[in-house]
């Protein structure tokens, strides 16, 4: 029995060790490839003017700010405000994106607006990005795989990113894309699929803590722009009152933990909390769900956002 256990452990040790390092490096490396495969930025090469303002973050920014309106209200030419936010995009992916874009692209940028939503910094959020799951321990991974709406298998964790990567290297960068109508901003008309559960389900904080590597990458993003002397504003976009109540009732401790961690990272970076900005009377008109604006809400918030910016010293 002892011989069998020792032999089995010894046999498993080499691939486990290799896969540990392999997965760490391979999957970290893979993030940008998968991301770029899913969302090609070849249209940035066709911009009519040099960009001045970049909008970064996840879906709350993608659907929250209309690049054309922000551009117009700030007095820029159309196309000088670019929305690079994407659904489920984490700080790691945002950082990879900044690394992947031609570095000369940032020469003309003077302002970056980045969405900060606490749940995107939770390890639970990895269910939307399987390539990040290398950061979980096996029990968290198992739990996530069994509770996620989308079943994630071991093959998907390794095989699919590999498959996508092979595809990426040969196909993704060859695709020519035209400039999108709203310079990267999305217009949300339907309710997103993944947001039906109560907000504390987004964290399950006793099993999935906040992700250290997300905060590390946020810090790297801030350093990236600091070196280039680009002003960064972090923003928490408006949320609907029922969602806010749910969040306050269920996630107070989680939020305090988040704020503590955030403060350690952002230093003196300006952080705008617009969560309560929409009055209860206007909610039905503006929101598509608890956290995402519809097209009317997006246009309204884009103008309000620029007005608010004018008051920042």
């Amino acid at each position: 029995m002892r011989k069998f256990i020792v032999s089995s452990l010894l046999f498993a040790f080499v691939p486990l060790l290799l896969s540990f390092f392999f997965l760490k490096f391979y999957m970290q490396e893979n993030i940008k490839h998968v991301d770029l495969y899913d969302f090609n930025y070849s249209w940035l090469e066709k911009l009519p003017h040099s960009p001045k303002v970049l909008l970064l973050g996840s879906s709350t920014i993608k659907y929250g700010l209309n690049a054309n309106i922000v551009s117009e209200d700030l007095g820029y030419e159309e196309g000088q405000v670019i929305n690079l936010a994407k659904n489920s995009r984490t700080a790691i992916q945002t950082y990879q994106l900044l690394q992947d874009l031609p570095q000369g692209f940032f020469d003309s940028v003077s302002l970056v607006v980045m969405g900060i939503d606490s749940w995107t910094y939770s390890q639970k959020y990895y269910e939307h990005n399987t390539v990040l799951m290398y950061d979980l321990n096996p029990f968290q991974s198992l739990y996530l795989r069994n509770t996620s709406e989308k079943e994630i298998t071991f093959n998907e964790l390794i095989g699919v990113p590999l498959y996508k990567r092979i595809l990426c290297d040969t196909e993704a960068f060859d695709r020519e894309l035209d400039i999108p109508e709203f310079y990267g901003s999305g217009r949300l008309e339907k309710k997103p699929k993944n947001f039906d559960e109560s907000v504390n389900e987004w964290f399950i904080h006793n099993i999935f803590s906040f992700s250290e590597i997300q905060f590390k990458h946020l810090k790297e993003i801030l350093n990236f722009f600091k070196k280039r002397r680009v002003k960064v504003i972090l923003v928490n976009t408006p949320k609907r009152s029922d969602w806010r109540n749910d969040f306050k009732g269920n996630c107070e401790e989680v939020q305090n933990d988040f704020i503590d961690r955030l403060n350690e990272v952002i230093g003196s970076t300006r952080y705008l909390i617009h969560t309560d900005m929409v009055s209860k009377d206007s909610e039905a008109l503006f929101f598509n769900d608890g956290i995402h604006f519809n097209t009317i809400g997006q246009d309204w918030y884009s103008r309000e956002f620029v007005k608010g910016m004018a008051e920042i010293p």
Binding site: V14, P15, T153, F154, N155, G159
Partner: peptide, 19 residues
């Protein structure tokens, strides 16, 4: 023998198709 087994493990990881 272990070389063969590791080879099979590698093939499983490398060629793992859509589950």
């Amino acid at each position: 023998r272990w070389g063969i087994y590791y080879g099979v493990v590698f093939l499983i990881l490398w060629y793992s198709g859509e589950p």
